[in-house]
Amino acid sequence: KSEEHWTCVVCTLINKPSSKACDACLTSRP
């Protein structure tokens, strides 16, 4: 599942699959 985009639970930004934290608010990926 690491190839899928993911949505930040805090700010709802859709992040790149390679991101380990949100690009906007830096919250860790769930």
Rank of each mutant, 00 (worst) to 15 (best):
S18I: 11
T12G: 14
H5M: 14
I14F: 07
H5K: 06
N15V: 01
C22R: 01
V10H: 04
D23L: 09
A24E: 11
S2E: 09
S19I: 10
W6N: 13
W6E: 06
S2K: 13
V10A: 07
P30T: 12
V9F: 06
S28P: 12
D23H: 11
S28M: 09
C11V: 00
A21G: 05
S19M: 12
N15G: 03
K16N: 05
A21F: 08
A24H: 14
S18V: 08
C11T: 03
R29M: 08
H5C: 03
S28E: 15
A21L: 07
A24F: 07
E3R: 04
S2T: 13
P17V: 08
T27L: 04
T27R: 08
P17G: 08
S2V: 05
E4G: 05
C25G: 01
A24M: 08
C11G: 07
E4M: 13
N15K: 01
T7C: 02
K20H: 08
I14S: 13
S19K: 10
K20Q: 13
V9T: 15
I14G: 11
T12W: 10
S18K: 13
R29A: 14
N15D: 05
R29G: 11
S19Y: 05
P30W: 03
E3L: 06
N15A: 00
N15Q: 06
W6Y: 06
E4C: 05
C11E: 02
E3D: 08
E4V: 01
V9K: 15
D23W: 05
T12H: 15
K16G: 06
T12Q: 15
K20A: 12
L26M: 10
T27F: 05
T27H: 10
C25T: 01
R29T: 07
D23I: 13
H5S: 10
V10W: 01
T12I: 03
C25I: 00
E4D: 11
R29S: 10
C22T: 00
E3Y: 05
P17C: 04
K16W: 03
H5P: 06
T12S: 11
S28V: 10
V9S: 11
K20L: 14
D23Q: 12
L13W: 09
L13Q: 08
A21Q: 07
S28T: 11
V9M: 14
K20D: 11
A21H: 10
I14Q: 12
S18W: 07
A24R: 13
C22E: 01
C22K: 01
V10C: 04
I14P: 13
D23G: 09
S28W: 05
I14N: 15
W6V: 00
L13I: 11
K1D: 12
C8R: 02
S2W: 04
W6P: 02
S28K: 13
I14Y: 05
N15C: 00
E4W: 03
P17H: 10
S2I: 06
S2D: 01
T27N: 09
T7Y: 10
P17I: 15
S28R: 09
V10Y: 15
K1I: 14
E3I: 12
A21V: 06
C8T: 01
I14A: 13
L26F: 09
E3H: 04
S18T: 10
K1W: 01
R29D: 08
P17L: 09
E4Q: 06
K16L: 07
K16F: 09
C22Y: 00
D23C: 09
C8H: 02
A21W: 07
V10T: 05
T27I: 07
C11L: 00
V10R: 07
D23V: 08
W6R: 06
E3S: 10
S18D: 15
E4R: 04
E3A: 09
C25F: 00
T12P: 12
S18P: 09
V9G: 14
C25H: 01
L26Q: 12
V10L: 03
A21T: 09
A21D: 15
L26V: 08
C8S: 03
L26T: 12
S2P: 04
C25M: 00
L26D: 12
A24D: 14
P17S: 11
P17T: 13
S19P: 02
K20I: 08
V10S: 09
V10G: 14
